[in-house]
Write a protein that binds this DNA or RNA. Structure first.
Lengths: 154, 154
DNA sequence: AGTCATATTGCAACGGGTTGCAATTGAACT
DNA sequence: AGTTCAATTGCAACCCGTTGCAATATGACT
């Protein structure tokens, strides 16, 4: 659900932002220098980034970067399926770039380390909620807090 | 008020805040008017409340209420197990009063309605993560975003 | 009742993120 | 190349929550 057909093979697409540009145009949205800066930053990102980090990295490209512009662009990019976000245990936003294998997040309350939950590991929960309630889980937004094995032992 | 009549399960301990007071004292912590005000508010709360709502309700009792005091008290109450918190889809904190049956949360991305996930419905996921990674899930902090049956149809 | 250590409060500044609105600008059309 | 209109930006104010620190007040002990 996160990644629709038009984004197939998008490892390429991301590096080459003209794909994003076309997607935006197709929706009557615009291609601006600010958006390009953010996409450059995203293209050189892997794993998870907080919103604040993205703002800072954009500022490295253009010191005049305005936070609200970055966050609004992130919203747009999420709508067209280019990034997804979840919330870390402290409530801060975490973004990451698609396409990537869809996954949820696991975070330790004590050591703050985090891990990814692959689709198959969450499958039971997802299908159970689907079946019992007709609820479709957004796995990439899922963030589970708890205690990791290492911290539990100490 | 905090201490009136009908005590059913969850009500008992909370309605009588002397229990909380004792728990605090047992840890060398103190009983203050500000904490009492918050406990009065919590005692008359059921279901979920945001931090901001709690601040506002405390202000109704004492207009001089300071947000940081409320949030710090909430931290303490969470440590002693009297409240738990999770994050709504927008990242805002949601508190709720214990004891209550432990549960996770389900929230619809579209209509923002939300539901509780009882322990047994999450059991498979919890035990799977426990077994495969030794990770202990904090169910009450869990908040799952997705699309509810009603919204999916439209 | 008075003393004292320290938990707690008030305050002010900050951090992350959002919103409303006027000014700017992308891009479609001519 | 110029016109036009809506999408986007910049800005400033705001919201929720956190943090550091000096001042205050709890409650244990005398």
């Amino acid at each position: 659900m996160a990644v629709d057909g038009s984004l197939d093979g998008a490892g390429v697409a991301l590096a080459d932002w003209s794909t994003v540009r076309d997607l935006l145009h197709a929706r009557g949205l615009r291609w601006t220098p600010q958006r390009r800066a953010l996409l450059d930053v995203l293209a050189s990102t892997d794993g998870h980034v907080t919103g604040a980090e993205l703002v800072e990295r954009c500022r490295a490209i253009d010191p005049a970067t305005i936070p609200s512009t970055v966050y609004r662009t992130l919203d747009v990019l999420e709508e067209i399926g280019f990034v997804s976000h979840s919330h870390a245990a402290d409530g801060r936003e975490q973004f990451h770039v698609l396409p990537v294998v869809e996954h949820g997040h696991l975070e330790c309350r004590r050591c703050h380390d985090s891990w990814e939950i692959p689709v198959d590991e969450a499958a039971e929960l997802v299908t159970a909620l689907e079946r019992s309630r007709g609820f479709t889980v957004d796995l990439s937004h899922l963030s589970i807090l708890g205690l990791c094995a290492a911290c539990r032992e100490t």
